[in-house]
Design a protein around this nucleic acid. Structure first.
Lengths: 240, 240
DNA sequence: CGTTATCTTGACTGCTGTCAAGTTATGTGG
DNA sequence: CCACATAACTTGACAGCAGTCAAGATAACG
């Protein structure tokens, strides 16, 4: 792991867990206090900069993580350099591939992020001992599968304009849920990353964002900040 | 379910299970004999014609299935008719979405097929009582997730030629595993279905198949039967 | 204030889609 | 067995959406 670019501190006791973002998340929410204490003892928090790699594609990883803050992108790279983002994960999601140590994809921080790292073999043991944890991780896998298949529809059958609208909708609904029809958020991805998520080029992404801006569906401030005056109108762009 | 187009017979005893294709599959391989007997009592075999629907998108399904023979396609349809195949399943795979009765996708037989159908609430109960079964289904979900993400790379970043080669490779490695470098198989999908799996049109699929045939990578007999003289050469077309 | 990274915009190319015609396989009725 | 109809597939001509290449604008950084 890319320890050089991260600040490390020990989260030695459940005291640290008490106020944790992921305390009631997929993993920790399924543990009883003794297990939580043991996991807390063997876990550590890392602050990772945007762009730094948490798991490398093709490598053996002996760790799992929980996302405490920030956004993590899951990415596949081809030998010739083409790449495709195959998933976005938000706090307090779990990151890792249970049961298979070798990762077929890379996980990188898309934004500055904070993660809680713990040993693979410890969690694997807890999974086998804790049906509730197994069920919880099973649920998370199924949700990721649903999301992946939904995105396959976007990649295979939507136009560039619909793709960009789909991404904005995904971010808007996952990053910071709001009640009003007006929504605003910071994009956790650069134009290049958006292109890699949508199967487009940077230029096409930029052009479609401009088109959505000129048609009044969104406003853009400072490249990264997006304002959606009417979410219903954005949803109509997706036609599904 | 589309019972009208299927022949139904009861598989009342584990005797029927003894010679079953799925006996050691994801579900039945994880049950002890008492459970297997109960599941056998409440399950029934159906022979389904190619094209018939097993689960409808947006409907509540109270059944799960095991595929005994044939190929099942998982498909998402947009309101305007565009559609995307998001997964192919082969015997002895499990079909269904545990824990969520409403299906966000349709499952249809791609070829004539035989499936074993059993009640959702019964299996859900067995899952909660049987850690080994939970684990087995968790494994299947993770494998489907890996496959879905691999296909996202194909949909987003590969050319039409690479997409068609990827599909042939997928079928060749899943349908009938062979040892020799020469491989041959029947396509379980029509040109239209291939197009819906690859995010292309029928015409582009046809053109790329012709191109692969003229370049000697494949031979085509009777539209559906494909011969791959050298699998390595096919893999080189995919560049990954 | 200069340098660099990121993003936008424009001109043009080309891959894939659209539309249409032709071909091959399959099934039905005479 | 043949004539016909239908469905599935292939091929060709052309169009258009998204990619490529290049220049310029904006923001971030030292």
């Amino acid at each position: 792991m890319d320890v050089a670019r991260s600040k490390v501190s020990y989260a030695g006791t459940p005291v640290a867990c008490a106020s944790c973002q992921a305390r009631h998340g997929v993993v920790c929410g399924a543990l009883w206090s003794g297990q939580l204490r043991e996991l807390g003892r063997q876990s550590l928090r890392r602050t990772v900069d945007a762009g730094s790699e948490i798991i490398a594609q093709g490598s053996e990883s002996s760790f799992y993580s929980n996302i405490m803050r920030g956004v993590v992108k899951l990415c596949k790279v081809m030998p010739d350099g083409r790449q495709q983002i195959v998933g976005l994960q938000f706090a307090p999601d779990f990151v890792g591939r249970p049961f298979v140590p070798e990762s077929m994809l890379s996980a990188q921080a898309a934004t500055d992020a904070e993660i809680c790292v713990f040993p693979r073999d410890l969690l694997d043991r807890m999974i086998s001992e804790t049906p509730k944890l197994q069920r919880s991780l099973h649920d998370q896998a199924l949700k990721e599968l649903d999301a992946a298949r939904e995105w396959m529809l976007t990649l295979g059958r939507r136009t560039a304009e619909e793709k960009v609208a789909s991404l904005l909708h995904l971010i808007a609904t996952h990053a910071e849920p709001q009640t009003a029809t007006t929504t605003s958020f910071d994009l956790p991805l650069s134009r290049a990353e958006i292109a890699d998520f949508l199967g487009l080029t940077i230029e096409t992404v930029s052009r479609q964002l401009t088109k959505l801006r000129k048609s009044g569906v969104i406003r853009i401030e400072n490249f990264r900040h997006i304002i959606v005056p009417d979410m219903d109108e954005l949803e109509r762009m997706i036609s599904a």
